[in-house]
């Protein structure tokens, strides 16, 4: 298992580097860019949901805080985009910290509802604080990110930036999961009481991972704002939070690579199924239910499990 890792990473990086040579079309690159942004969001949420076992139905709020901080500070106040990005991270982290202290004392349904309520309030703020956010018709004129005169304004340049960051965060997350902290997280996921008895400060750990995943979301939000050059509140509503949870679920909880897969599948699927646009919501709902009922370890892992189960049963019966 461990031995396969470097090959996997190497192959992935190579594929990412070669993909633009094959896909010469800006549309495909843009699609990949959105997959990259969603991957960052989903990896962060997966750390919280899959590893720490805490749900958030309001993650779109942190995504929105990142996007709006970047958007407002650059488009309205002309601040350097990188400073704005940093400000977005600080603000989202602070917000997550403040809301996390009381919220993470709650469990299960109560936490779900608290994060959802928080998400709704932040969304309403984006809509209502029109002088600041531009209100429901959105905020336009957000400039591109630039590094020493090199502006990330074309899909290809953005591809390089977004995927470099996504790759970095995938690696950081994988490292985190394998560390002592990761083991503590899993203990927390299995049983909070048991983790507590092992001397883990569960409250602090939960808060840490909550803030950490909010930072991922805020970074993704900043990238989103600078990619689209325009933001509107509708991108940060509850339905988007639910879509993120769906991505985590499809990719598989507690699976770093699964996050990539979940983000990819659910970003590409609606594009492929444009003919069935009326059914999109139905499909999302059905996926959530079917996967959680029958394949609670995620689509890929679940299908693999099923296959292995069949395989071993056949072997077993052959032997017996």
């Amino acid at each position: 298992m461990k031995g396969r890792r470097p090959a996997l990473w190497g192959g992935f990086v190579l594929a990412l580097a070669l993909l633009p040579l094959w896909l010469r079309n800006d549309y495909y690159l843009s699609l990949l860019n959105f997959i990259g942004i969603h991957t960052i969001l989903v990896v962060g949420l997966n750390l919280l949901m899959g590893y720490a076992g805490q749900i958030s139905l309001g993650h779109a709020a942190f995504f929105g805080v990142g996007a709006y901080t970047s958007g407002i500070l650059t488009a309205t106040y002309g601040l350097n985009p990188w400073l704005a990005l940093a400000a977005g991270l600080v603000l989202a982290g602070l917000l997550a910290f403040l809301i996390g202290i009381p919220a993470l004392k709650l469990r299960g349904y109560y936490l779900a509802m608290a994060t959802l309520g928080f998400g709704v309030i932040v969304y309403i703020f984006f809509v209502q604080a029109q002088r600041l956010t531009g209100g429901p018709s959105g905020l336009s004129g957000i400039p591109a990110l630039a590094l020493a005169g090199f502006a990330f304004h074309s899909p290809l340049r953005l591809y390089a930036l977004i995927w470099a960051l996504a790759l970095g965060l995938l690696a950081v997350s994988a490292g985190l999961v394998d560390s002592r902290l990761g083991r503590a997280l899993r203990a927390l996921h299995d049983s909070e009481a048991a983790a507590e008895s092992l001397g883990i400060n569960t409250q602090r750990l939960k808060l840490l991972i909550f803030v950490w995943s909010a930072l991922y979301a805020a970074l993704a939000g900043s990238l989103y704002a600078h990619t689209l050059n325009f933001i509107a509140p509708s991108s940060f509503d509850i339905m988007f939070s639910i879509k993120l949870v769906t991505m985590v679920v499809v990719g598989g909880m507690a699976s770093i690579w699964g996050s990539l897969l979940g983000a990819g599948v659910l970003t590409v699927l609606p594009e492929l199924l444009v003919v069935f646009h009326d059914f999109e919501v139905v499909i999302f709902g059905a996926i959530l239910m079917v996967v959680m009922i029958f394949l609670p370890r995620g689509l890929v892992r679940g299908l693999l499990d099923l296959w292995e189960y069949r395989h071993f049963r056949r072997e077993g019966s052959a032997r017996g």
Binding site: I55, V245, V281, V282, F284, A286, M292
Partner: peptide, 27 residues
């Protein structure tokens, strides 16, 4: 049919159910 009856699983299933019912009603 749900075997893993943790709140996390059940929340996601019923949220999915809500989305599904709403979508079907729209159709």
């Amino acid at each position: 049919p749900v075997r893993d009856r943790s709140p996390l699983t059940l929340i996601i299933i019923t949220v999915g159910g809500a989305v599904l019912l709403k979508g079907l009603a729209m159709l």
